[in-house]
Design a protein around this nucleic acid. Sequence first.
DNA 1: ATAAATACTTGATATAGGCAAGTAAATTTT
DNA 2: AAAATTTACTTGCCTATATCAAGTATTTAT
Lengths: 143, 143
Amino acid sequence: MEEIEIIHSIRKFNRNYVRSIGLLEKTFLNTGYSLTESHILYIVKEQGKTTATDINKVLNLDEGYLSRIIKKLISNSILTKEKSEDDKRVFKISLTERGIKEQQKLDELSSVSVAGIISHLSLPEQEELAHSFNNIMRLLYGE
Amino acid sequence: MEEIEIIHSIRKFNRNYVRSIGLLEKTFLNTGYSLTESHILYIVKEQGKTTATDINKVLNLDEGYLSRIIKKLISNSILTKEKSEDDKRVFKISLTERGIKEQQKLDELSSVSVAGIISHLSLPEQEELAHSFNNIMRLLYGE
DNA sequence: ATAAATACTTGATATAGGCAAGTAAATTTT
DNA sequence: AAAATTTACTTGCCTATATCAAGTATTTAT
């Protein structure tokens, strides 16, 4: 296979996939959260008590933008922050009770959405699909 | 493989890929065009003389939004429109000379960007990658 | 002839995202 | 140990992206 074909395959995928799966829409699965917000909540769930900086090691957002999103999520009682003991520049961020529930709801909705997208496939086909996605992850990000 | 693992694989990919490849950024590859604008130009190149409706069969944007983007691209001399003969509600849209050049530039930049992303891989790995992307395209969209 | 559907436009508004400057605390340099 | 630099986060200001609803003109269906 020539490089031009390889690039062509990837670009074709890029054009189609992101849009078809709704990742460009302003609100994520009509939840009232943006894709970025839902990613932040996912990361806070994963990392437990964390910091804006640590969140941004994953997301690489504009710092000011991230700060504002966190502020908003705090004012909506989804997140809380407390000043760190050892480094007074830092705020420890975590999910509130309500935040945990909301995150789980988003998680569930996301899974249902993906389930819908692959529902027309047989189980072997779904497995093949997962295998291809895993393959890409491994090749691009080494995991 | 269980369904939950399959869904997990896909969601993991979704979380990582879109962001890593820069498809969420406001301007596409620092070109001054948005991702959506560059998709529109790509489609007009592919379809030749076409219409807003036909573009939107691919992109599914808000009609008003698409109308405005086209308007902007026309005022920047990237696109032109002329009233259709047979259906007077319809405008035929096409690339101007300048539009053709701009589209080619975007095309080239996009390819270079993808080339960069896969540059750390060996050719066999790149082929495997392309194969995985093709596989996903086939399974999800039947091509 | 009337109603309904299609193709496109416009107004108003929300939200996402980007850039730059600024504060405060920690770390490094000299 | 004072000065300079870096790090963590915030705020102001702005633009672009996207959404929703209503409106016009033309075509198709009843």
